[in-house]
Computed example of a mutant assay.
Amino acid sequence: MKILLAEDEPISRMLMQRTLQQFGYDVVLAEDGRKAAEILSSEDGPRLALVDWMMPELDGPELCREVRQRQNERSYVYIIMLTSRQNSEDVVAGLESGADDYLVKPCAPAELQARLRTGMRILELEGKLVKAHEEMEYKATHDSLTGLNNRAAILDFAHKSLQRGAHQAKPTLLVLCDVDHFKHLNDTYGHPAGDAVLEEVARRLGTAVRGGDAVGRYGGEEFLIVIPGCDRAAVERRCEDIRKAVACVPVVAAGGELSVTMSVGAAIYEGKDDSALEPLLMQADAALYRAKAQGRNCIVVADLMAAL
């Protein structure tokens, strides 16, 4: 594990570096507080630090305060302050500046190693908490079967896209897709086959969109695609690309190849009302209904929605 050693006195720095290397740490050195702050703020900077109280540029407490101010920008840094000061007022000042622990110089190697192990345990715990939070956040915004945005997340993305489009005078395209004859597929081949079809359709839709677009499972066998800034002249081409991405190759499921197609309904909005999501969804849904009525496996684009 990497550890930052911030110490301006050369002999003390060399001796402490050797001790830390004997403990198995990869030691990164800083000769002043400003350099230490830059290292700790870098993308791959150490998350464990030993900093001297008295240093040029920034002293230990100032360094701690600066690191804590940037805390939201990166993972937590565990800081142990090194000093020859021993009175309680100094201990309190060091800890209140943002240090996690405090060691009086010269410190015994065994005590130093024990304090560092405590820091590592705390960092490991923080890592587990961050991972658990990310997993909870992912589950709250993604569909468990397909891994796509869930209904709430894709609608939130659509709403924000409309807001940006209204402010930047750029259109927003909604594409509503429905797997054709999905109930028959489920009834004939079973729900595992149906799930496999939905997973593969989701994967293909994901490859059919671009970086700034978003795909979500709208419900059941329906998917919603949000394409911000789509030029009106490109709407039919983008929708046709999406339809073809699903229909191009049979889906392998239930021990064989299943022909899967989608009906596609689309609606585009170029107005300035950022609350137009609900009527835009209604237009896309009506276009999807017409696509199904026209024989499925086709696209229907609603008339340009009038500016509200």
Rank of each mutant, 00 (worst) to 15 (best):
N87K: 05
R204H: 03
E221T: 03
L280N: 01
V264I: 14
L173W: 03
I79G: 04
H181K: 13
R115C: 11
C107Y: 12
A202D: 07
L4Q: 06
A291P: 00
A166C: 10
E62A: 15
D231S: 14
G98W: 08
T261M: 15
A166F: 04
E236W: 03
Y218E: 00
V28P: 03
E96T: 10
H159F: 04
T207A: 09
G127H: 07
A152R: 14
P61Y: 07
D285T: 06
V215T: 02
S144L: 13
M54E: 14
L123I: 10
I154K: 00
V260D: 00
D195G: 10
G256H: 03
N186S: 12
L20D: 05
A166L: 09
L50W: 02
R237H: 07
A114S: 08
V249N: 12
K160E: 10
A307R: 09
E57H: 08
Y78Q: 03
R203T: 10
I242F: 11
I299D: 00
V301M: 02
L155C: 15
E31P: 01
Q294N: 15
E137D: 12
E222H: 09
T118C: 13
M16I: 06
I299T: 11
D143H: 07
M136W: 05
L20W: 06
L162N: 02
L103A: 04
Q283H: 12
I225G: 01
F157A: 03
K131Y: 10
D52L: 11
I299G: 02
I79L: 13
L58W: 01
I79N: 00
Q22K: 14
A152M: 14
Q22L: 12
M1Y: 06
T207I: 04
M262I: 10
A253H: 08
G147Y: 07
G98Y: 08
Y218V: 00
E31G: 13
G295F: 14
V246K: 04
D178R: 06
E66D: 09
V260P: 00
Y78L: 02
M16L: 15
Q163L: 13
S263A: 07
R151S: 06
R210A: 11
L29W: 14
E9Q: 14
A247D: 11
D26V: 10
P228Y: 06
S263L: 05
D143Q: 02
L288F: 00
P171C: 04
D100K: 08
E43M: 12
L288D: 01
V77F: 05
L155Q: 14
R204K: 08
G216T: 05
V104T: 13
R164W: 03
E240C: 09
G271N: 02
G33T: 10
A287M: 08
R115Y: 13
A169G: 04
Q71S: 13
S263Q: 04
D273C: 09
Y189P: 03
A284D: 10
C230P: 01
T172N: 06
A291I: 02
G127I: 01
Q86F: 04
V77K: 05
G216Y: 02
K292H: 03
M16H: 08
Q113N: 13
G94P: 02
A208N: 11
